[in-house]
Simulated assay, not measured.
Amino acid sequence: MTTAPAEVRLSRICAQTLDPAEVEAAVTNPSAGGVVVFIGKVRDHDGGQPVSALEYSAHPNADRFLYDVCAEVATSTGLPVAAVHRIGDLTIGDLAIVVAVAAAHRAEAFAACSGLVDQIKHRVPIWKRQHFATGRSEWVNSCE
């Protein structure tokens, strides 16, 4: 059995609501027995404080950074990958990021998906401002 070369099937930063089915469909293929989809949602707390909302901002070239990270993971793993990150004002429960990886077996897909999420978090210039229920706010990862 031969498989198609790995590639970035979807890479986008947008202000619209994210669709996990779109991201999953981008990587799904007949040779993939394992498709892992990670969905990152806005939670209602951080560091013991109640969070009321988040605001994501991105560098003007963040799309290119996201694509490059996805391409590196696709190349190093040989697997198709997809990632979409939202920017703008988000409320509790909103989807902030959806990432998918497909592989013949689940272990490969889980490892590649986890690695991709880590690389996006550390290398793509997207900054998060948390708004707390107290009225205070703080920037997270604003120096990375």
Rank of each mutant, 00 (worst) to 15 (best):
M1D: 13
M1K: 13
T2K: 09
T3F: 11
T3H: 09
T3A: 14
P5M: 05
A6P: 09
A6Q: 05
A6S: 13
E7F: 08
V8T: 12
R9H: 01
R9N: 02
L10S: 04
L10A: 13
I13C: 12
I13Q: 12
I13M: 08
A15T: 15
A15S: 15
Q16R: 13
T17R: 11
A21V: 06
A21L: 05
A21D: 15
A21S: 15
E22D: 04
V23E: 07
E24S: 15
E24Q: 08
A26M: 00
V27H: 10
T28C: 08
S31Y: 12
G33S: 03
G34C: 01
V36P: 02
V36M: 06
V36Y: 01
V36G: 00
V37I: 00
V37Q: 02
F38N: 14
I39R: 05
I39S: 05
K41I: 14
D44K: 06
H45M: 11
H45V: 13
G48R: 05
G48W: 05
Q49K: 09
P50V: 09
P50R: 00
S52Y: 02
S52H: 04
A53D: 03
L54Q: 02
E55W: 00
Y56N: 09
S57G: 11
S57L: 02
S57V: 09
A58E: 05
P60G: 08
P60D: 08
N61E: 07
N61Q: 10
A62T: 00
A62L: 02
R64S: 14
F65Q: 15
F65I: 03
F65N: 12
F65K: 02
L66Q: 10
L66I: 04
Y67E: 12
V69W: 03
V69K: 02
A71R: 10
V73G: 06
T75H: 15
T77M: 06
V81R: 13
A82I: 10
A83Y: 02
V84C: 13
V84R: 13
H85N: 05
H85P: 07
R86S: 14
I87A: 02
G88W: 00
L90C: 14
L90R: 10
T91K: 01
T91R: 06
I92G: 00
A96W: 03
V98T: 02
V98I: 04
V99T: 12
V99S: 06
V101M: 06
V101I: 05
A102P: 08
A102Y: 05
A104K: 01
R106M: 07
A109P: 14
A109M: 14
A109S: 15
F110S: 11
F110N: 11
A111W: 02
A111P: 00
C113H: 03
G115D: 12
V117I: 14
V117H: 03
Q119A: 15
I120A: 13
V124G: 08
V124Q: 09
P125L: 05
I126T: 07
W127V: 10
Q130I: 12
Q130N: 04
Q130R: 01
H131P: 08
F132E: 00
F132K: 00
F132H: 00
A133T: 12
G135R: 03
E138K: 02
W139N: 04
W139G: 10
W139Y: 03
V140T: 13
N141V: 00
S142E: 12
C143Y: 11
C143F: 11
E144F: 13
E144G: 15
